[in-house]
Write a protein that binds this DNA or RNA. Structure first.
Lengths: 110, 110
DNA sequence: TTATATACCTAAGATTTCTATGTATAAAAT
DNA sequence: ATTTTATACATAGAAATCTTAGGTATATAA
């Protein structure tokens, strides 16, 4: 994750949301998608992403399907049932986080 | 910092913004102010805050004035000149971060 | 033939935060 | 009178996350 420290702690939420949106994705695809969505402002590093995916899988949040495309390995991840309900909580937390940060940055509006 | 992982990385930005807003504050006051602004949703822990304040001071972002009030020590922190310009950058980063996160969570709006 | 893009991976270190604990005074509650 | 709560500072060890820096391998573009 390049850029500011602020993104610390948001990686798994980003991954879960993208999987909720797109059904299934593989690691490299996630890095490209985030770069695209944020117009290059946010670059997820592989050193952060792959361990995070493995952890989410170990926790039962994600499950993996391995496929061979063009002689290259792809590991497609998708949310489990548990992962889907976790994602709902995560997104609620994210919205609360954004609200709270905006209250701090712009106290006049609240 | 209680609650979700998302707040990781945002502590110094919060502190700097509050000091920009309020001129000078002491540590305990900062914890109370954040609790108040976020209606109890965000609690800054002292184990995170004090080392962060010391680090910002060591970096020349903050300077400290020690006072004795009611027989109790207070260390008032305020932004240095360097700290003030750093704060402007931090707040711009925060706004960009929030924009990016909203693009991810709500891709239809962008 | 070399560089870039695709696609996975890990290990060591840095950084941040949490948990737990410590000191001390003042005020409120039992 | 004593205990709890609030105020006010602090640190040390552990946990979590991310960066940096490498590694493997195939396919395509320069």
């Amino acid at each position: 994750m390049k850029n500011s420290q602020l993104y610390k702690g948001s990686l798994t939420t980003i991954v879960m949301k993208l999987l909720e949106e797109n059904g299934r994705m593989y690691g490299y695809e996630i890095t490209q998608k985030v770069k695209e969505i944020t117009k290059g402002e946010l670059k997820i590093t592989e050193g952060a992403l792959y361990p995070a995916l493995h952890k989410l899988e170990a926790e039962g949040v994600l499950e993996v399907e391995i496929e061979n495309v063009d002689n290259r390995l792809r590991k497609y991840y998708k949310l489990t049932e548990k992962g889907t309900s976790e994602t709902i909580n995560r997104l609620a937390e994210l919205e609360e986080f954004i609200r709270n940060m905006q209250s701090i940055v712009n106290p006049k509006l609240t």
